[in-house]
């Protein structure tokens, strides 16, 4: 058994069987991570480069831990302080890294489609760790895996993604992933932050966060990505927090317990209040924990030395 893809560029290209296989493999790795020795020798002969053209804490550390716990050799590259600032192109940068015999590249880039472009032009497995406002596949996989862990299943569950849908690669990957697994998906937030025609992806749209929370069983709350907003889309963060932020009072008024998720980093007091982020309903830290197992599974399943040309 192998995945139907050679690279993990996005959830869009995966089948539901692929996702199920990743989850089952992650179950096994999660069990490895609970042992006294949290490491297996599987990828002793594999070298992986983490190439990050954009800032990251969780994703980079999570990928690096996943790689090291599979016994792969790891090299890290951050664009700041590198020759990229001297004008080197993406393909040149990556090919120079590959010339030092690297088998797999984990890349984050601010340009949407950069991992796809790379997969067409270099001879290595590519894993997308977030590209612009397009996809962040491993985040969506670990989100769905965490929901499956908490609720037992995903099919038929009502899941709402709240916040800056427009600029969020997490939102798009989640919509694809949850859709393929048979969940009902809703997006909610201010009209200026929800892309037009997003209903075509099979999701419901709601502009009233309270109504969205009443509908859903799981709320995945996203960060406002001010760094990607080049024109004002709402007046102030305070106003956003007032109308779209989630606090304990709102949750208590629902009369039911919903699961709260957030891909991080949280802007406490904006999209989520601390009393919500730290509550028992929140599985934010479970998401981080599951991230390592999911990434181990993805790397393991893509690591077969099948000819890239076939």
């Amino acid at each position: 058994m192998s995945l139907s893809v050679k690279h993990l560029l996005g959830i869009k290209e995966l089948t539901s069987q692929d996702i199920e296989q990743i989850f089952q493999t992650a179950d096994n790795f999660k069990q490895v991570l609970q042992r006294p020795i949290k490491k297996v020798p599987t990828l002793r002969d594999t070298t992986i480069a983490n190439v990050f053209f954009e800032n990251s804490t969780r994703t980079r550390i999570s990928f690096e831990l996943a790689e090291r716990r599979l016994s792969a050799d790891v090299v890290n590259f951050a664009s700041s302080g590198s020759s990229v600032s001297k004008g080197e192109t993406l393909i040149d940068t990556v090919n120079n890294i590959l010339a030092m015999k690297v088998d797999m590249v984990v890349m984050r880039h601010s340009a949407s489609g950069a991992p796809w472009f790379l997969s067409q032009n270099v001879d290595a497995r590519i894993i997308n760790a977030g590209d612009g406002i397009n996809e962040h596949p491993t985040q969506a996989l670990l989100d769905a895996y965490s929901i499956r862990e908490r609720l037992g299943s995903i099919k038929g569950r009502r899941i709402c993604i709240i916040g800056d849908i427009m600029h969020s690669r997490v939102a798009l990957s989640n919509i694809y992933c949850l859709g393929k697994l048979g969940a009902e998906v809703m997006v909610a937030g201010p009209p200026t932050l929800i892309p037009k025609h997003i209903e075509d992806l099979g999701v419901k749209v709601e502009y009233d966060v309270k109504k969205a929370l009443q509908w859903c069983e799981v709320a995945n709350v996203l960060r406002i990505q001010l760094e990607r907003q080049h024109k004002p889309l709402f007046s102030t963060l305070r106003e956003y927090a007032l109308y779209y932020g989630i606090n304990k009072q709102t949750l208590d008024s629902l009369g039911k317990e919903i699961v709260i998720m957030h891909p991080g980093p949280i802007n406490r007091g904006v999209e989520l209040n601390s009393d919500v982020a730290n509550s028992k309903q929140s599985i934010i830290l479970d998401q981080v924990e599951n991230g390592v197992a999911i990434r181990m599974a993805v790397i393991y399943l893509l690591s077969g030395k099948v000819d890239l040309e076939d």
Partner: peptide, 22 residues
Amino acid sequence: LDITFYRDDVHSTNTIHVPSQT
């Protein structure tokens, strides 16, 4: 005991071995 992750032929065959529960 599942030994999938300890095999010495992870990369010499064309298929990826499916792990079982330990």
